[in-house]
């Protein structure tokens, strides 16, 4: 099939940027969306044009690097990552618009590549259990009900791609933050730092310039890993509880 693309091109952070149109012929159903971009980039290089820059790595839907905003939706029409989106989701003759994630906290670096360092800094502010290597109890000394472990896993499955932020009209990072806070709040290992974690991670999230949550649910709808809004509800409870009975004395 033949596809028309409108792609955001921006040379660097200072550049104003704009859309550029491309035609890609010989697109097959079995191609992934990124493989279609590979084909286009090969053509561009042959014509001495700068290839389109985009983040990608594992191409298995798990590293969270890929981040294209396709036809107004993060990762495109299916609830999956861009690398797992296949061209069979489109029709011959379709025009597809591709932009980078748009959020103040994720500045554009070049074309479709953005800086998601804010997510790393949020994890650094408290997204862990403070145990050193060695000297920990035997793994089976910490029994955890299966149901709790499964719920914690569901939250832990976040890949940190930032689709939730890109989907949100306020560019809120609540789904990302709440997933990590929830995972550790549910598990016995996370109890000791439960309150400070919620406070510190929310505080870092605010410092990074992410917007507020107004519970529209766009993040959940677009999350390629199906992270649920329940996490946000839990974060709100955790945060309120932490503020009222703070450990930060």
């Amino acid at each position: 099939m033949k596809i028309k693309l409108k792609v955001w091109r921006q040379k660097n952070q200072q550049d104003k940027g704009g859309f550029k149109a491309y035609d890609v012929d010989d697109v097959s159903d079995d191609m992934s969306f990124l493989e279609m971009f590979d084909v286009l980039n090969e053509q561009l290089v042959k014509k001495n044009e700068d290839p389109i820059h985009f983040d990608h790595d594992c191409r298995e839907g798990i590293c969270g690097a890929c981040s294209m905003y396709i036809n107004g939706r993060p990762h495109g029409p299916e609830q999956t990552t861009t690398c797992q989106l296949h061209m069979r989701s489109f029709k011959d003759g379709d025009t597809i618009t591709v932009e980078p994630w748009r959020a103040k906290a994720f500045p554009v670096i070049k074309d479709l590549v953005v800086d998601r360092g804010a997510f790393d800094r949020i994890i650094q502010s408290g997204g862990y259990v403070s145990v050193n290597t060695g000297g920990v109890p035997d793994a089976n000394d910490i029994p955890i009900p299966k149901k709790i472990a499964d719920h914690a896993f569901d939250s832990a499955t976040c890949i940190g791609c930032g689709a939730c932020v890109a989907a949100c009209k306020n560019s809120s990072a609540m789904l990302f933050v709440s997933a990590k806070v929830s995972q550790l709040a549910m598990l016995p290992q996370g109890q000791v730092e439960r309150k400070t974690r919620a406070e510190n991670m929310v505080s870092q999230m605010d410092d990074e310039g992410f917007g507020s949550c107004s519970n529209t649910g766009a993040c959940e709808a677009e999350c390629p890993k199906g992270i649920s809004l329940e996490n946000i509800a839990r974060l709100n409870r955790e945060y309120l509880n932490a503020k009222v009975t703070s450990d930060n004395i």
């Binding site: 862990y128 259990v129 145990v131 290597t133 060695g134 920990v136 109890p137 035997d138 793994a139 089976n140 910490i142 029994p143 955890i144 009900p145 299966k146 472990a149 499964d150 914690a152 896993f153 832990a156 995972q183 550790l184 598990l187 290992q189 996370g190």
Partner: peptide, 21 residues
């Protein structure tokens, strides 16, 4: 030791109904 370490960090390994790994 690796399994002990990872569990202590909060890695959500699969578990049986009795709560063990």
């Amino acid at each position: 030791d690796i399994i002990d370490q990872c569990v202590a960090q909060g890695v959500p390994f699969a578990r049986e109904y009795g709560g063990l790994l």
